[in-house]
């Protein structure tokens, strides 16, 4: 009998990469598989994709693991790089996968303007509520009141609702799930990969090693149990008052609509201007 291998690993990852870079129990690994499963179920080829990430633990999701074109860029800037790739090669499926610090803090402006411009890329924002790679500092996504390395007496700031921000900026596809929902992540990603506009998927993900330890939220399983217990689907959440939604994670697809996409508009404009010249 031949050796049993994981089919997604065999088909879509680089052979020389023997291990993921994540700590034991990290949610990033669940997201890795959810992305590859979406590509597999769509019957797409890795050559149709370019993956772009910034700096942080979550930025290691596509690179060096995925056997595709991967750009591991500077902290906060993957959406800027991805915008360039998409405008240069509009036929590519350009996918950004990076952390909450990377995309919502230092890179926050790129995020809102990419949503506003409706550039046809997919952004997967891994929200572990902390700057994990650098040692558990407070991020804009850290809940108010928890202890972190930089707020040993508890954070004093309100938490950023990133999906609402991206929604308000005009993104035509916005979804939020947790790592307890890998099948739903895959399903939303399949929509994102086959739609033309800017698609945003926020994934609440466990970081047992930094977030779990510094905020005393416990192990990977403790965090997954919290996601299981406290996630509320958007349809149900709409019928609930803010008081009863405290401490809950609202999940689901918040919007899915069609809008004119920037790289397609550019291509059309270019054709129109060139025609006028000839």
């Amino acid at each position: 009998m031949s050796e049993i291998m994981h089919p997604l690993r065999m088909k879509y990852t680089r052979e020389h990469v023997k291990k993921t870079t994540n700590c034991p129990g990290c949610g990033n690994g669940i997201i890795v598989q959810a992305i590859l499963r979406a590509i597999d179920e769509l019957g797409m080829d890795m050559d149709e994709f370019a993956f772009v990430s910034g700096i942080g633990c979550s930025a290691w999701i596509p690179s060096p693991l995925f056997n595709a074109d991967t750009l591991h860029t500077t902290h906060g800037r993957p959406i800027a790089f991805a915008t360039g790739v998409k405008l240069g090669k509009p036929e590519l499926n350009v996918v950004v996968a990076s952390g909450d610090g990377d995309l919502a803090a230092i890179g926050g402006n790129h995020l809102i303007h990419a949503a506003r411009r409706n550039i046809g890329i997919t952004v997967i924002l891994v929200n572990n509520g902390i700057y994990a790679m650098t040692g558990g500092q407070t991020a804009p996504t850290t809940p108010r009141g928890v202890n972190t390395t930089t707020n040993p007496y508890g954070t004093l700031e309100s938490v950023f609702d990133i999906s609402s921000l991206v929604l308000a900026a005009g993104a035509p596809f916005v979804a939020r799930w947790t790592t307890y929902h890998p099948r739903q992540i895959t399903s939303s990603l399949k929509k994102a990969f086959t739609s033309r506009g800017f698609s945003f998927i926020e994934i609440i993900s466990q970081c047992p090693v930094q977030y779990g330890k510094v905020t005393k939220s416990g192990s990977a399983l403790d965090l997954l149990k919290h996601y299981k217990k406290d996630s509320i689907k958007i349809d149900k959440a709409r019928t609930m008052d803010p008081e009863s939604l405290k401490g809950k994670i609202v999940v689901g697809e918040f919007v899915n609509e069609q809008k004119p996409e920037l790289s397609a508009e550019w291509t059309e404009l270019k054709a129109r201007v060139m025609e006028g010249r000839s």
Binding site: I4, K18, P24, G25, P208, S219, A220, L221, K225
Partner: peptide, 19 residues
């Protein structure tokens, strides 16, 4: 069901399969 033991990061700190 096959466990590929070499790439596993351990039931103690991960253990997601048990859950």
């Amino acid at each position: 069901v096959t466990v590929l033991e070499q790439s596993c990061k351990g039931v103690e700190d991960c253990g997601i399969c048990t859950f």
